[in-house]
Design a binder for these strands. Structure first.
Lengths: 323, 323
DNA sequence: TTGTACGCGTTATCAG
DNA sequence: CTGATAACGCGTACAA
């Protein structure tokens, strides 16, 4: 039951008959600054002793942690956990740790989290933004802390961003439905606010259809009967386009649209999981690639760690599929 | 665009005309060790300057971080994100940070994560275990790092654990179905292995029904037609009991059980979200309280932070509801 | 190529 | 009640 005394860089230095500075150089990959003999010796000893650096000390000396903050707008959603997985898989390969925070779709929470993250010297930040206030992020960039936005844009071109082709893929899908004879689209979404994904998707619909109805609902307090009153359900040329999977599932499960005599697909939307396909195997939906989006965001972030003056801002688009 | 120089404890001490030691005491809440006057003065200055401690320095000095590792067996599941939320809500109130890791249902990954977490001096660990090897956890307890298990037990009574009443609630639900005239149960689950939740649920079924069929499937590669061949689907007295929500949804969406002429509920299971209820509004399912489980685990963990020799091991049970 | 000495911000100890 | 000072473990000028 004894506490295991952890080795320090000093112990390693002593064992190897070199100075701590040399060990430190080895640990930081500055192998060209020492004889090959020394490097080999250190490699052996470190392996044998299973020595690991004390990350607190590293952090204190370097004035940066190995923590990357990831602020999701809602971690309940499959989309979030999936892109978080993508982020973590890349980060951990470079010994960074992804820390997941949840702004819970609440701008005040987001603001508090950003403040807290800022104060903790995180090495970087990946943010799925709620607000469009760039000044919240300026603190980080002024502090040389790289920031990457994911999923949503905030409209200033200063920050690297990973999104999907919301407008294009929506337009593509809508064009397909137009061909099938639809003449009206009812969009069902959570409140649009200034959320770029929703704005772009709606624009995608409007670029194809003239007759567009927009219904904003609250997922947690959805009144289906109230909703169906608003929808022109008996018009077979009215397409339902649902921007959020949970809403889509609820509608698929509770309307008769699935068992239409015409058996024509009259409802579609953005999906994250396979569940909508269980419910309607022959329907086509728009599917994103959250894992890839996360991995990409992490990659961009880490590139900014190494490059000195993070000159090139990148707007990366990971396309979605309509299928 | 200037870098903002962060204040140090030294700066505060100078401004207040006291020593750094005094400031440190104030920061640690040792208010009885100083005059009220000093305390008031410090409070004012710290508020005005918006000073925050450098957590790396704290960590180095205390030899413990403010990070709590949370290792989930699969973060894709709603159950995980929900209990993680519960954990975070309690931790953050005490300035601890929850770090989410995903063992991805892979014992090798779990083992590697534990090793990595151990080396990073996390303040504590909340683990949803895959393996039942206690020696993986001994390292932590030997090191005075508190550990709490969540959802699943590993069978040695040495570690605090938060679970639900898998056996009891299953038994209760089964008794209700027995009353309705069922005489056989088909359990559909992912491979049982040594996972305590699954074992207990199966035992709950067996405590009520004599005729029990067990089918182990792989969620990601589920062949529905193959499955229905195995099930005695035409026997109206055969109940389907599904241990995993994703499987349950898939079955609900793809079988005709929902539209039985008898309109009797012939399928049930454990659920995490409302989705199964969308599909079958009148059915009864077993619902856990993951958020509460997480909050409870965090509370136990934090109690172990303060108490010296974490004497009392607790086995907490958060009951599930059949409704 | 290698070593020394100091800085990083905080806490703990011991002396007043 | 308060202060001085030695750790804590590592990175990095600067020196050799």
């Amino acid at each position: 039951m004894d506490k295991i005394k952890k080795l320090t860089i000093k112990d390693i230095a002593t064992k190897a008959n070199v100075s701590t500075a040399t060990v430190s150089r080895y640990l930081n990959g500055q192998l060209n600054q020492m004889s090959e003999k020394t490097a080999v010796k250190l490699k052996k000893i470190i392996k044998e002793t299973a020595y690991v650096r004390n990350s607190a000390a590293v952090q204190l000396a370097k004035q940066k942690s190995n923590l990357v903050a990831v602020i999701a707008s809602n971690i309940d959603e499959y989309f979030s956990s999936e892109y978080f997985k993508g982020i973590v898989s890349l980060l951990s390969a470079q010994n960074y740790i992804g820390v997941l925070f949840d702004s819970n779709s609440d701008i005040a929470v987001e603001s508090a989290l950003l403040e807290s993250v800022y104060n903790q010297d995180f090495a970087g930040l990946i943010l799925q933004p709620l607000s469009t206030e760039p000044h919240l992020i300026d603190k980080f960039t002024n502090n040389d802390t790289p920031v990457v936005l994911i999923d949503r844009d905030i409209g200033n071109g200063e920050i690297s961003t990973v999104t999907t082709n919301n407008f294009q893929v929506t337009k593509f899908a809508m064009a397909s439905f137009l061909d099938e004879g639809f003449n009206k689209v009812t969009i069902i979404t959570e409140p649009v606010n200034r959320i770029s994904t929703r704005i772009e998707r709606i624009a995608g619909v409007r670029s194809v259809f003239d007759h567009v109805q927009l219904i904003e609902v609250d997922t947690d307090h959805l009144d289906l009967s109230e909703l169906s009153d608003e929808i022109d359900i008996n018009n077979p040329k009215n397409l339902l386009f649902v921007l959020k999977e949970r809403l889509l599932i609820q509608l698929l499960a509770n309307t008769d649209l699935l068992n239409e005599p015409t058996s024509r697909q009259r409802i579609t939307g953005f999906v994250d999981t396979n569940i909508p396909r269980y419910l309607a195997p022959k329907y086509k939906f728009i599917q994103q690639s959250p894992y890839l989006m996360g991995a990409t965001a992490a990659e961009i972030l880490m590139r900014q760690f190494s490059e000195q003056h993070t000159a090139d801002i990148k707007q990366i688009v990971i396309p979605s599929r309509f299928e």
